[in-house]
Amino acid sequence: MPAEEIDRVLARRLLATMQLIRAFEEAVRDHFAARHIPGFIHLSIGQEAVAAGLASALEREDYLYVTHRGHGHVIAKGADLKRVAAEIFGKASGYCRGRGGSMHIAAFEVGVLGANGVVGAGLPHAAGAAWALQLQGRPQVAVAVFGDGAVNTGLFHETANIASLWRLPLLLLCENNGYAEFTPLSVHAAVESVAERAAAYRLPAWRVDGQDPLAVRATVREALGRVRAGEGPALVECLTWRVRGHYEGDPQRYRSSTELEEAVAHDPLRLFAGRLRREGLLNEAEEAELAAQARQAVAEAIAYAQEAALPDPASALEDVLYQPSGAG
């Protein structure tokens, strides 16, 4: 995209979102290492441009289902950072009252209807949301985010077929980071391109550089243009790089140092900020200021989460079932 077309405000917003995600996940990484956070953690460091680009192309009222690696999307969709942090720390004021944690976070108030601990399982949920939107005659769309690994589940294929057949207002957004856990794409997929597999279901599909938030945004907007026009679902495959291990604590023995260096070299924050500087849209001081703002917001959110109250054990039996009386 030529320089003159880059909107300065938009570019900064995208950079700020990526910085916020990065700062948040670095803090989560450190607090997890310090054992302040229970459970396990999957970080999206290196993949922030996908979340930022995608969310910037969505309306607040659009619905989003994300994965186990979903902090970025939840933040980009506009969730309250404090309640996200509190959830990850297992606190009562977290979005899910401490029942979900990092892997099962949901923030309904901003349309994030759920992360998922089971690979591929959220895909039909997004299609179901899209079906409801279609039936209710509402203008929004539903988006399912999933990894390259999820494309091998039966649910991907069942969902793609139904969504295409029923022309659902659904965007399938694949974050292809080349790995499913410790297994590279070449070992887990017979066909390298996810977009190509979408063709089997007559889904219009795009493959885009997932390190470039503007490219992700432009592609998602193009795809959503069709979806919103009632032309049925579309698939966008974002090629991206996972820098950290599959989970925090994964020593990544299955990756060469050259490959890891390459992943770091594809850092979307550095690349995008560099480009904005080159094109005169941002100077170093401004970049540092944006980064400082992100760190400040994260510091406040983490401090809030650390101080927040733990859930009352007596509340553990609440919400097993919906009780009209409100008795929990």
Binding site: Y65, P124, W131, A132, L155, E158, I162, L165
Partner: peptide, 21 residues
């Protein structure tokens, strides 16, 4: 009518129920 995709169909119902169907 749905395809023989039982898992996806129950998944669809979950998403649809979440939105009020």
């Amino acid at each position: 009518d749905t395809p023989i995709s039982e898992a996806a169909v129950v998944g669809l119902a979950i998403g649809a129920a979440t939105l009020g169907l």
